[in-house]
Computed example of a mutant assay.
Amino acid sequence: MPARDLARWRARAEASLAQILPDPTASPRRLHAAMRHGVLNGGKRMRPLLVYAIGTTLGAREDSLDAAAAAVELVHCYSLVHDDLPAMDDDDLRRGQPTVHVAFDEATAILAGDALQTLAFETLATAPQPPVQRIAMLAELARASGVAGMCGGQALDIDATGASIALVELERLHALKTGALLRCAVRLGALAGNATPTQAAQLDQYADALGLAFQIRDDLLDIEGDAATLGKTAGKDIAQAKATFPSLLGVDASRARLQELLAVMRQSLDALEADTSALQALARQVVERSH
């Protein structure tokens, strides 16, 4: 059952992260506590779930995927800690709790984000894959995290705030800011599962559609949701004059685009000729999620 698999993998990811993160009673205690606050706060764990779902679909053992699943989530969590800072999105709420700079302070939040990022690469460097595979996985995570991925996308997002941009520019922005790390999670699972070039191409198509769908749904939730449901401040995009898919396409067209992307994901998975029920469930979850 896909739901049972997803629940088990989510619990596995939580346990791995709790074990990898530093002991909050050890020095420097404030930094360690901030790191744990930024990670162990009830996230969706979409990226670890993708690593487990892809890897096991291709025949990898679950325990061989733990390091990759934890590493990509640590990078994601570091990015959220920094995104919430006053210099970036200036948010007080994340996953229903005070953001790290609010719960601690700005300097500690910056250090916590830095430490989570380096811990991610330290964790992935210990993955049980052969050295050649492990280096390829490290390269994927580095590429997805830097100027050709998440950081580059965030820079484009800052530049676009308050400006009028075309749809193609918005799609490129989010292919880097949001899509790159989701694609990385898919590629980490594919590398661990020894995907063939054909399988890797199909999975990339799935990942690209998933990343875009994730962002469109996020944009819709920002105008349709509330802070209690979302676990973060609603209406921030409009307040900060950010370019979003609903603002460019309209709400109805954005919802229609979600359904088109869901069809692309289904077709990509069908071409794998494997049991992709967990990946199909994740695709639906992205399109239908309420937070």
Rank of each mutant, 00 (worst) to 15 (best):
D83Y: 08
D83L: 04
D84L: 11
L85A: 11
A87L: 11
A87G: 08
M88A: 09
M88N: 13
D89V: 07
D89Y: 05
D90S: 14
D90N: 14
D90F: 05
D91P: 02
D91E: 15
D92G: 06
P98D: 13
T99G: 10
T99N: 07
H101F: 04
H101L: 06
V102R: 14
F104R: 14
E106K: 05
E106T: 05
E106A: 03
T108A: 14
T108N: 14
I110T: 14
L111C: 11
A112T: 13
D114Y: 01
A115H: 02
Q117A: 00
E122L: 00
E122W: 00
T123K: 02
A127V: 11
A127C: 14
A127P: 03
A127Q: 08
P128K: 13
Q129F: 11
P130I: 07
P131M: 04
P131Y: 02
P131I: 08
V132K: 15
V132F: 13
V132S: 15
Q133W: 01
Q133C: 02
R134A: 01
A136N: 07
M137E: 02
M137H: 01
M137K: 01
E140A: 14
E140L: 15
L141Q: 01
L141P: 01
A142T: 14
A142D: 01
R143F: 03
S145C: 04
G146V: 00
V147A: 15
G149V: 06
C151H: 04
C151E: 04
G153R: 08
G153C: 11
Q154K: 08
A155F: 03
A155H: 08
L156F: 02
D157V: 10
D157M: 09
D157Y: 03
D157Q: 09
D159C: 12
